[in-house]
């Protein structure tokens, strides 16, 4: 291990180390902590300019209820879920198929197709903005959930294909030969052999895709207009404009928007890290 581990016997060094790390962590997360604190304050306190003192009253429940009752946040939340969950499902299905074929089948152009998936996944979103927006307007999906679901599914399939292909390519080839020799059809091989073996990859991909799609802002403002379809990220920015002086409520909304991906991250941390590094480092 590098750096050299602090010996278990040296308790004071360990305590000092943990204290140091905690201090760095507090600094690191300070911006977020101040927002959290603000989200607990009352409106009067915010108006009076008490941003940094100890909150006079804790308005946790009031503020967070108010955000849902008085603003469209609940609607935005529902929209985000309606957009994110089908996109994740779509990406998992499509990338399992593409990853399986690209990793296990030799055909001319295999490498080119793979390179297109990988390369396309790095393109800045602005490159495809005009045609995609035009396409969605053209087929009447602009400002509907479908516009975002279709786009996110398509775009995330690029990264997910890289991920799945590398994961499946690392599985022992003889398992696939055995399945074929046993008479399993390609579909049976996929369902009975590939899918059970790639469960960890599916979990990692699910959480990564969830985070990416949930956090998207650009496409939210390019492909939607109305509150009825806007996801939370675009919604939050709207709220900020509407509730300029009610900082405590905006803060509460900000925290609410952050909670799903952070919660997902803590629930499936192992998969998230594995996914991120594996996706980046290639299987």
């Amino acid at each position: 291990m590098y750096p050299r581990p602090i010996p278990e016997t040296n308790r004071s060094a360990r305590a000092a180390y943990v204290t140091l790390v905690t201090a760095v962590l507090v600094l690191w997360l300070l911006p977020l902590v101040t927002v959290m604190l603000t989200s607990l304050r009352s409106f009067e306190e915010v108006m009076a300019g008490n941003y940094w003192g100890w909150p006079k009253s804790f308005n946790l429940v009031e503020n967070y209820t108010a955000v849902f009752k008085q603003t469209a946040l609940a609607r935005y939340f529902a929209n985000s879920l309606i957009i994110t969950l089908p996109s994740v499902l779509g990406v998992l299905i499509l990338s399992t198929l593409t990853g399986y074929v690209l990793s296990r089948h030799r055909f001319p152009g295999n490498r080119l197709v793979f390179a297109l998936f990988v390369g396309g996944n790095f393109l800045p979103a602005q490159i495809m903005m005009i045609p995609v927006r035009d396409l969605m307007v053209g087929i009447g999906l602009y400002d509907t959930f479908f516009a975002l679901i279709i786009f996110h599914t398509a775009f995330q399939t690029g990264f997910a294909t890289l991920f799945m292909r590398n994961f499946i390519a690392a599985l022992p080839d003889e398992l696939f030969q055995a399945a074929r020799a046993e008479g399993a059809s390609p579909w049976q091989t996929l369902w009975h052999v590939v899918v059970p073996l790639i469960r960890p990859a599916l979990a990692a991909l699910a959480i990564l895709t969830f985070t990416f799609v949930w956090n998207d802002y650009f496409w939210a403002i390019v492909l939607t207009q109305s509150d009825a379809v806007k996801p939370v990220t675009a919604g939050l920015n709207n709220l900020r404009g509407e509730w300029v002086s009610a900082w405590n409520l905006v803060a509460a909304a900000t925290i609410m928007v952050a909670i799903p991906p952070v919660a997902m991250f803590f629930l499936m941390q192992r998969h998230f890290i594995a996914g991120l590094t594996m996706g980046a480092v290639k299987g």
Binding site: P172, E174, L175, Q177, A178, A181, E182, H192, V193, P196, L197
Partner: peptide, 11 residues
């Protein structure tokens, strides 16, 4: 045919 592999290829 049936085939037995070097790595056994058990699922």
């Amino acid at each position: 045919i049936a085939m037995v592999f070097q790595s056994y290829a058990l699922y």
